[in-house]
Amino acid sequence: QLNAMAHQIQEMFPQVPYHLVLQDLQLTRSVEITTDNILEGRIQVP
C-alpha cells in the first residue's frame, strides 16, 4: 500500500526521489501529510 501511495505522490512531484517519498510515508502513512511535507520544504530534495 505504501508503494502505491509513493507512486501517486511521485506523479505529482517527479523531482522528489522515490526513496525520500517512501521514507516520509513510512512515518506519516498519509499521502496528504507527505504532500504537505514536500510543499512546505520539509523533505530535502538533492
Rank of each mutant, 00 (worst) to 15 (best):
P14S: 05
E32A: 13
Q44P: 12
M12N: 08
R42L: 07
A4K: 12
D24Q: 04
L20Q: 05
Q44K: 12
H19W: 15
H19P: 07
H7F: 13
M5C: 08
P14A: 05
Q1K: 13
Q15P: 00
P46S: 11
L27G: 06
D36I: 15
M5W: 15
T35L: 12
I38L: 07
I43F: 08
P14C: 06
M5D: 05
Q23N: 08
V16F: 11
T34S: 04
E11R: 15
L39P: 00
R42V: 04
L22A: 04
V21S: 00
M5A: 07
L22W: 10
M12I: 09
Q10R: 13
Q26H: 10
Q1G: 11
T35E: 04
E40M: 15
Q8M: 13
P17M: 05
L27Q: 11
I38H: 00
F13T: 01
V31W: 10
L20M: 09
T28D: 02
L20P: 02
V45G: 09
I43L: 14
A6L: 08
I9F: 03
D24L: 09
R29N: 12
E32I: 09
T28L: 02
N3F: 15
H19I: 10
E40Q: 15
G41C: 08
Q23K: 11
M5S: 04
S30C: 07
R42T: 05
A6V: 10
M12C: 08
D36M: 15
H7G: 08
V45R: 08
R42Q: 04
I33Y: 07
R42G: 03
P46V: 11
S30N: 08
S30P: 01
P46R: 09
E40L: 13
T28H: 05
Q1I: 14
V45E: 08
Q10A: 14
Q26D: 07
L2W: 14
N3W: 15
L2C: 09
L39K: 13
Q1S: 14
I43E: 00
I43S: 01
P46G: 11
Q23Y: 09
T35M: 14
L39R: 14
E40R: 15
I38Y: 03
N3A: 15
Q44G: 13
Q23P: 01
T28E: 02
M12P: 01
V31Y: 08
N37C: 03
P17T: 04
Q44F: 14
T35C: 12
T35H: 06
L20F: 07
Q8T: 10
T28G: 01
Q23A: 14
T28R: 01
M12A: 08
Q8H: 10
I9N: 00
T34C: 04
Q26P: 02
A4G: 08
Q44R: 13
E11W: 10
M12W: 08
P17D: 07
I33W: 08
R29D: 07
H7V: 11
V16R: 01
L25T: 00
L2S: 03
E40I: 08
Q15C: 15
Q15I: 06
D36E: 14
N37D: 00
P17H: 04
E32R: 13
I33R: 13
H19C: 13
T28F: 05
I9C: 02
R29V: 06
N37M: 02
L22Q: 04
L20C: 09
Y18H: 07
